[in-house]
Design a protein around this nucleic acid. Structure first.
Lengths: 314, 314
DNA sequence: CGGCCCGCTGCTCATCTGAGCACCATCGCC
DNA sequence: GGCGATGGTGCTCAGATGAGCAGCGGGCCG
C-alpha cells in the first residue's frame, strides 16, 4: 500500500468509526467506490491502525487466552484486561473476580476442591457468590495455621468458599513449614492430618496461587520464614512459591531440606492433578507465573494481560 | 440494564470485536437471540465500554472538530489525535503536517496568503509538498528580521511556502518590535514597507501561529524581548502573542505602548479577515489558544486533541 | 513488439446488521 | 381483579457489508 492509500485508509477510518458513516457515504465523500473503502478499512485494521479496546473491570482478552492455550499447552486460560487499571490492588481484584467467575462456570462441578491459601485465594473467596455451586466440599492442600496477628485467613478462605458453595470445608490443622523435619513427619503421621492430606490427594480440582520470592511474602508475614531466609532462597534461584514450596525458574524445588519440612501436597502431585487452577497476577509475579506454566504446575491459568504477554513474548 | 446484561454485553463485545464472530454465532455461544446480542453490543458502545482509537500520525478527531465548529463558532477546525504521541516535538510535527494538509486542500486556493513566522510556521513550510498550489503569492504579515544567530528563518518560511506553491514571496523588511515609537513610525512610512503591509492587508487568507508568554518565546530567542520584559507582560495578564502582539485571556492587547512599537497587521485586521488560520498546539499554549479562539482572532483553528478539549471543556 | 503474469478494480451475490413494529409479561393504579 | 402503561422480546425487511470472481491494465521478459 502506498502512502496515498495509507492516508485514505485513515480518512476512511475516521469517517467510519468516529462519524458512523456507511462505507457508501465515505466512498462519495472521498470519491472512491464503496468496495475500495471496504478494502481500505480492512487494511487499516490489518495494519494495526485501528485499536479497539473493551473498557470494563470484567473484560477479558480472548485472543491472548487462545495463545496461552495453544502456545503453552494449557487446558484453559483466563486473561483479564489491564485497560484502565491504575493500581496493583485493582488488578488483583479483577483477577480474583475472574477466578471466581471461572469457578462458578466450571463444569463438571468438582465434588471436592483442594485449595491453598493467601491473599489471592482469600480475595477469590470474597468474590464468589452465595450459591456459586451446590455441595462443593473444600479441602486445604497445604498447611496454614497462621502464627501471627492475622490468624484464620487460611481457614476463613476455605470455609468461605465451601459455605458459599453449599458444602463444608476440611482444614489442614498444621503449620505451613515446620522447624524440624522430625516434627513435620510426626504431624503428617497424625491420623487427622494424614486423613486430610489423603482427602486432598483425591480432590477433583485444585485452586491455588503463587507467591513472589520477596519480603512481602505471606510466609514472611505469617512468621514461617524470616527476611533472611527469603534472601537465601532468592540467592539459590528461587522465583517464588506454590503451596508453600519455593521453586526456581524451571519449576524445581530450590531447597529440598526446606521442602521436606513443608506440609501439604507436593508439586508433583499438583502436576498430575486432573485440574489444577493457578491464579497469578501482578508485575511482581511475572517470574513465578512463568515457572508455574513452564513446569506444568497448572492446567488452567487465571492471570492478567501484562503477565500473560510476559509469558508469551518474554 | 442490570448487572447480568452488563456482563453479557462485555462477553458479547469480546467475541464480536476480538474474535470477529457474527452476532448470530455469539447468540449461539451465549444462548441469546441475535437481536439481543445486537442490542447488548449497542448498549456496550453507548455506555462507553468500547473504545475505538485510530493510531496514526495523520489521524484526526472529527467529532472534536465538529464540536469546535459548533460550540466555538469556527468556520473550520482541524484536530490531530494525540494517541501514541510521546514528545511535544512529535505533537508539533503532527499539527504542522495537518496544517500543511489543510492548506493543500484549501479551496478556493488563495491568490495571496499572509503568513507570520516562528517555529510552527517554519515547520509547516517544511511539510508542504512541492506543487501544493500553483501560483500562491506569500506575504509576511509581521516584522521579523531576526536579530540573532538564527537569521532568515522568517524569510525562509515565507519563501519556502511560496516556492513550493509556485509563487513568490514578499518579505516585510523590518524588525518585529522597535525600541522607539518614532522609529517604528518611520519604518512604516517607508515606501517599501508600507507597500508590503498594504499587500498584506489585501491577502485572501492568513496563516499564523501563537506563542506562549514564557521564556522560550521566539521573541526572547530573537532578541526583541528580554526575559524580564516577558515577566512584566505576564504580570500584566499576557497569555501569549499573535503576530508579535501580546494578549491577555480575553484577547485584548496587554501593553498598548509595546503594541504600538510592533510592526505588522493589527489584531483587528486579523479579526476582520475573510480567512484567518491559526495553528496552535501543545500543552504550553492552551491558554493562548483559548484567548485566540474566544476573541475571534481566527476563523480556522488547527490544533491537537488535548488543546481542543481544553478549549471545549475548560 | 507481442505475450504473459500479477495485482487492482468494480461487479454479483450471499450474509450480516440495524430500524421499525407487533406482541407479551410485568407492574402499578384504580 | 381489571386495565392501561411500560419495557423487553422476537420478528420482518431493507440496507450495509464481505467473499469471491471476471476483466482490465501495467510491467516484464522473450
Amino acid at each position: 500500500m502506498d502512502e496515498i492509500d495509507e492516508l485514505l485508509s485513515i480518512r476512511a477510518a475516521e469517517l467510519y468509526y468516529e462519524e458512523n458513516k456507511t462505507q457508501d457515504e465515505i466512498g462519495q465523500a472521498l470519491r472512491l467506490t464503496r468496495w475500495k473503502v471496504g478494502r481500505l478499512l480492512a487494511q487499516a485494521k490489518q495494519r494495526g491502525f485501528i485499536r479497539i479496546e473493551i473498557l470494563h473491570p470484567r473484560a477479558r482478552r480472548l485472543p491472548i487466552e487462545r495463545r496461552l492455550r495453544d502456545e503453552r499447552g494449557l487446558t484453559d486460560a483466563i486473561v483479564v484486561s489491564v485497560a484502565g487499571v491504575h493500581s496493583p490492588e485493582e488488578l488483583q481484584e479483577r483477577t480474583a473476580q475472574a477466578a471466581a467467575d471461572y469457578l462458578t462456570a466450571l463444569r463438571p462441578v468438582p465434588r471436592t476442591l483442594g485449595v491453598s491459601w493467601g491473599r489471592t485465594l482469600f480475595e477469590i473467596s470474597q468474590h464468589l457468590r452465595n450459591g456459586w455451586a451446590t455441595g462443593v466440599n473444600v479441602v486445604q492442600i497445604n498447611g496454614g495455621v497462621s502464627l501471627n496477628r492475622r490468624p484464620g485467613t487460611a481457614a476463613a478462605t476455605a470455609v468461605g468458599i465451601a459455605q458459599k458453595g453449599g458444602g463444608s470445608a476440611t482444614l489442614l490443622p498444621s503449620p505451613a513449614i515446620l522447624e524440624r523435619l522430625a516434627t513435620k513427619e510426626a504431624i503428617e503421621s497424625d491420623r487427622v492430618v494424614a486423613g486430610v492430606i489423603e482427602l486432598a490427594r483425591s480432590a477433583d480440582a485444585y485452586l491455588f496461587s503463587a507467591g513472589a520470592a520477596d519480603h512481602n511474602s505471606v510466609h514472611v508475614e505469617s512468621g514461617y520464614l524470616s527476611i533472611g531466609d527469603v534472601d537465601v532462597l532468592v540467592q539459590k534461584g528461587a522465583v517464588g512459591d506454590v503451596v508453600g514450596r519455593y521453586i526456581d525458574s524451571d519449576g524445581n524445588i530450590v531447597d529440598p531440606a526446606l521442602d521436606a519440612r513443608t506440609v501439604g501436597l507436593t508439586l508433583d502431585e499438583l502436576r498430575e492433578a486432573p485440574l489444577a487452577i493457578a491464579v497469578v497476577a501482578g508485575t511482581t509475579k511475572h517470574a513465578v507465573a512463568d515457572a508455574v506454566v513452564r513446569s506444568g504446575l497448572c492446567s488452567v491459568l487465571v492471570t492478567d494481560e501484562a503477565t500473560a504477554l510476559h509469558l508469551l513474548d518474554g
